[in-house]
């Protein structure tokens, strides 16, 4: 993709983010979820696409963000926005710490074994949260009410999630332009070779996961407040939905590419809404079929398919 169209996409997204909720007030929540999906896909791609570590455990950091915000807002007795801010700070801090600790234990595992280990991590986290009375156990936690006027709350969270998604994308874009980005790719392409060339692979891998954890926890705290309620298995540690979707969105768009995860998130989110609207009752079946179609026909994702098509046309 040329530089020009890069900027076109960026401008279009920025315009949607800023003007969309105002022009289409009925869709504000949809926009907010779209930005959340973009954060999911872009952060998943740091490990999954760039570093070759397919994680089904990234949702754990989202869940940590959800619960940290909820607990802080419940127990600290602060006004709404102060409580939210502190909750986000604590949540991101805990998530980054968790990523560093879990990373030093799990990132030594390669390939499918890493995927399975992280899947276990997600299931375990959900079970722990569902059995822990301090965080409401199986009945989850309710977040405090947004203090502003009706409708203002959706607007606030839509804009904040847009800001998180934009910052996350721009940071990743910068990271991939540095030697760090090349190091991630080197680990993906041949981990043993990267070791043999003297790269400090362990800190590189842990740092990459910490970045993903930071943005996931940030979006988690905001999303929990937007939804107003967190369920341990269906919202916070929702491995079967959010946890799988982030993988799918990145693959659909084209993992390891700059715009792929963003594109994948947009297409996925719109498709899902269409299913909900017109295929109600069958939406899960349709989603399942979509997953199969993605994996079978677009293993390279939309961006990969596009690049291949262009290469073939140039060759012809």
């Amino acid at each position: 993709m040329s530089r020009l169209s890069d900027w076109h996409i960026a401008a279009l997204l920025a315009l949607t983010g800023i003007a969309g909720p105002l022009l289409l007030p009925a869709l504000v929540t949809q926009f907010a979820f779209l930005w959340l999906m973009i954060v999911f896909a872009v952060t998943w791609d740091i490990l999954g696409g760039r570093m070759g570590y397919n994680s089904f455990g990234n949702i754990v950091f989202f869940g940590i963000g959800c619960y940290a915000a909820a607990v802080i807002q419940r127990d600290m007795g602060l006004p709404y926005f102060e409580g939210l801010a502190l909750g986000l700070v604590v949540g991101t801090g805990l998530a980054v710490l968790a990523a560093a600790l879990l990373g030093s234990a799990l990132l030594g595992i390669r390939g499918h074994y890493f995927a399975i280990a992280t899947l276990g991590l997600t299931v375990a986290s959900g079970e722990i949260a569902a059995g822990w009375n301090y965080v409401g156990a199986g009945s989850g936690m309710a977040l405090p009410l947004y203090p502003g006027a009706l409708g203002e709350r959706e607007l606030f969270f839509s804009y904040s999630l847009f800001a998180v998604a934009a910052c996350c994308f721009l940071l990743c874009r910068w990271l991939y332009s540095t030697r760090f980005g090349l190091a991630l790719n080197a680990i993906r392409d041949d981990h043993d070779k990267a070791d043999a060339m003297g790269l400090r692979t362990t800190p590189i891998k842990i740092f990459a996961w910490c970045i993903a954890a930071f943005f996931l926890a940030l979006s988690g705290g905001l999303a929990a407040n937007m939804i107003g309620f967190i369920d341990p298995r269906d919202v916070a540690f929702a491995g079967a939905t959010f946890g799988v979707w982030m993988v799918l969105m990145a693959i659909l768009g084209g993992k390891g590419t700059l715009w792929g995860p963003v594109l994948g998130a947009v297409v996925f989110h719109i498709t899902q809404e269409i299913f909900w609207t017109w295929l109600l009752g069958w939406q899960r079946v349709a989603l399942g079929a979509l997953i199969v179609i993605i994996v079978v026909f677009f293993p390279q994702g939309i961006m990969g398919w596009w690049a291949e098509r262009r290469a073939r046309r140039e060759a012809a």
């Binding site: 090349l182 190091a183 790719n185 080197a186 392409d189 041949d190 990267a194 060339m197 790269l199 400090r200």
Partner: peptide
Amino acid sequence: RIYGAMSCMENMAISAREAQ
């Protein structure tokens, strides 16, 4: 053993001493 999905120049850049 090379980094297959990276360009030759990228392979070289990440093999430089300062990448360690």
